[in-house]
Write a protein that binds this DNA or RNA. Structure first.
Lengths: 102, 102
DNA sequence: CGTGTAAGGAATTCTGACACG
DNA sequence: CGTGTAAGGAATTCTGACACG
């Protein structure tokens, strides 16, 4: 299912470098519920590569003038599509290799 | 080729959590040349998931009493094997799908 | 609404060194 | 050789708030 891509291990400073977004923006998008990073014991935010990708999508949409509330809805849809796609790929691979008893 | 697995984005504290190794050990293995993390502008160490896996191998071998110099040699071999394996998989996939013009 | 910024404090990380063995 | 630790300093991150629009 998941893998390195979903492990929450990147601190906000690195995420800022990766995305080009300010710390303020990254925290704000979280406040608006567009993503939810993990936390270290002491309260430090930890992001996954998926989160970084989400942030890049957000940045794009924001540049187009889309408000965070709207972007939030889009992200939810993206997640559903993602799931469907994953299932299809899984099915494909299964059809190719999964049933081969040899 | 590479991907998330090889991106240097994890700080040493998280790596310590992930591997169970002390900061001291992690830095020492670097000093001995068993791995080479990236650096942020200000000098902070940044590790990849591959580095984390390498550290776990190191931890195993150390528990068996193997010295760092010896482990270092083993790691170099591992990398060669890795490359060969990657090539084989690539060849496999190519044989399965790559030539299909349909 | 979205983002910048100064504020004060807490937690992280860095390096070089001494210790023990 | 491998690892712990105390030391001093620098860089990171956190939260809540005020500002502007």
């Amino acid at each position: 299912m998941s893998s390195y891509k979903d492990k929450k291990v990147i601190s906000i400073g690195i995420v800022s470098d990766l995305t080009g977004l300010s710390l303020r923006k990254i925290r704000y998008y979280e406040e608006r519920g567009l993503l939810s990073p993990g936390r270290t014991e002491k309260g430090g935010r930890k992001y996954s590569f998926s989160d970084v990708e989400t942030l890049m999508k957000i940045a794009e949409r924001r540049e187009e003038g889309v408000q965070t509330a709207e972007i939030k809805k889009e992200l939810v849809k993206d997640i559903s599509r993602q799931k469907v796609r994953d299932e299809m790929i899984k099915g494909q691979l299964n059809a190719q290799f999964g049933l081969r008893k040899r």
